[in-house]
Design a protein around this nucleic acid. Sequence first.
DNA 1: ACAAAAGTGTTCCTCTTACACCCATGA
DNA 2: TCATGGGTGTAAGAGGAACACTTTTGT
Lengths: 248, 248
Amino acid sequence: MTVQMNSGISVDCVVFGFDGKDLKVLLIKRKYPVEGLSAEDPKLPGAMILENETIPQAASRVLEESTGLSQIYLKQVGIFSDPDRVSPEELDWICKYHNIKTERVVTVGYYALVKLTDRIISYTLRRGASWVRVDDIHYLVMDHKKILAEALLALQKEMILSPIAFELLPKKFTISQLQNLFSAVTGIGMDNRNFRKKILSSGLLKATGEKERGVAHKPAMYYEFNRSSYKKAMKERTGLEFINNWAY
Amino acid sequence: MTVQMNSGISVDCVVFGFDGKDLKVLLIKRKYPVEGLSAEDPKLPGAMILENETIPQAASRVLEESTGLSQIYLKQVGIFSDPDRVSPEELDWICKYHNIKTERVVTVGYYALVKLTDRIISYTLRRGASWVRVDDIHYLVMDHKKILAEALLALQKEMILSPIAFELLPKKFTISQLQNLFSAVTGIGMDNRNFRKKILSSGLLKATGEKERGVAHKPAMYYEFNRSSYKKAMKERTGLEFINNWAY
DNA sequence: ACAAAAGTGTTCCTCTTACACCCATGA
DNA sequence: TCATGGGTGTAAGAGGAACACTTTTGT
C-alpha cells in the first residue's frame, strides 16, 4: 500500500430552503453528459477545489454559483473518502469535464441555509436547478444521497442547539412559521402556547408591529430575529447545561 | 485559477489523555530532519492517507501507530486547507519523506481520547513521544497549534453534550475523578453534592463495591460507566431540549 | 489528634408541562 | 355566519441551585 499521490478534492453542498411548509433541497443536473451517465440524474451542487483556495472558500464559491448569493450560512458536514465512492465512469466524467487526472476524489460535504425569496427561486430555476422536498428525494448520483442524509442529521442537531432557524426564514416571520420550521426539520411537535412563551421570553424575537394581511383568519404578528440580544446572551452563558443533556 | 490537481491529504491527531489532574496531549518529534527544520520541534502524530484507505481509517492507523491501541474514541475536528499552511521547506520535507510529489497538503484534524494506562505511557515514551499538559504547549510545527486549539474546543463542546468523559478515565474511577476531569476540560466548577446527585441519578454509573486503598482520607467508591443504560436512555430521548440551550 | 478528601439532605425557586377557549379576519 | 389559524393563562410537578457538617482513613 502506498501513499496516495493524486487526490482530487471537491466540495458538495446541500442547500436547504424552507417554503413555509416543507424543507427543500436544491438539486441540479449533470452538465455535459457522457456515455453511460444520464444527464437527468439529480445531484448536489459541487465543484473541485481550485489552487489557492481553501475548502470553505470553494464551498462559498459553489454556493454563489448555484444561488447567486454570498454571505450565507454554511457548515461542514463531513468528509466522504471511500476510495470507491466514485465509480470508474463517474471518475472518467470528472476528469474529462475538468480536464484533470485523478485516481480518486475525496469530497467535503457542506450544508447551507438560504431564505427562499423570489429572487433566489427564479435565479435557480433559470439555471435549470430545482427545489425538491427532502422527503421526495429518492436518488442522487454517487454518494450524494448519503451526503444529504448526513447533512439533514447535522441540520437537525444544530437546529436544536443553535438559533439557525432564522437563516431559513424571511427577515420578517410569524411565530407559527418558526414553529412549523422546527417541526418540519426536527420532527418534534410542541404545544403552541409553551412554544410562544419560551421563544418570546428568550428575547431573541423583536416584534415589528406589522401584521399579516389578506389571510382568512386573525392576522399574525411579524417578528424579526434579534441578533444582538443573542450575541449578548451567548457571552453570559453559565455553561452548566451538561449532564442534563446526556444523562437520565 | 485552475483546478487543483495534486492535493496531498493527511490526517493529524490530537490525542488527549487525563492523568487525574491535568489534560495532556501526545506530542512527537519530526523524524528524519532536513536542513532548516529542527528535529526537536514538537508536532502532532499524523500521516498521509494511503490508497484504498478512507480518512477515518487513516486516523485510526495513525492512532494505532502512535499509541499501540485500536478501538479508541476518534472524532473529526475539521479540515485545514489553507493553501499556505505548509511552508515550502515543510512541503519539501514531506515530499522527500514520503517520496511523493505534491503542491499542497490538506489535512484533516481528529481528536482521540485514551485512557492513560501504564501500558500506553510506556509504549509512547519508548517511541520518543511525550505527554504534555495542554496549558504548557506553546509551539507546534506548521498549523498544528491551531489544530490543537480547535480540537480542544471541540472536546469541550462534546464533553458538555455527551458522556465521553469515560473515554478518558480508567475503567474504574471515583466520582471526584470524574468531576475533576469535567472541571479540567471545561473549566466549569460545580457544587460537589449537586454533581453527585445528578450523576448518580442518571443511572450512568455502576458502583463496583471496591474502594480506594492506601489514601490518607476516607476512601472513595469506585464506579464504572454503565454503557448499556446510556444506550437505552438515548433511545428514550424526548428531543425537546431545544430552546433552553440557545435562548435566554 | 489532625489533616484530607468522601459523602450526605433540605429548602427555595425556577422552569416545564399539560390543558381549552376566545379573537380577528376573509370568504 | 362560518371556517381558519392566531393568540392567551394557570396550576401542578420536576428539576436546578445554594448551602455546612460528619465520616473515614493514614500519619
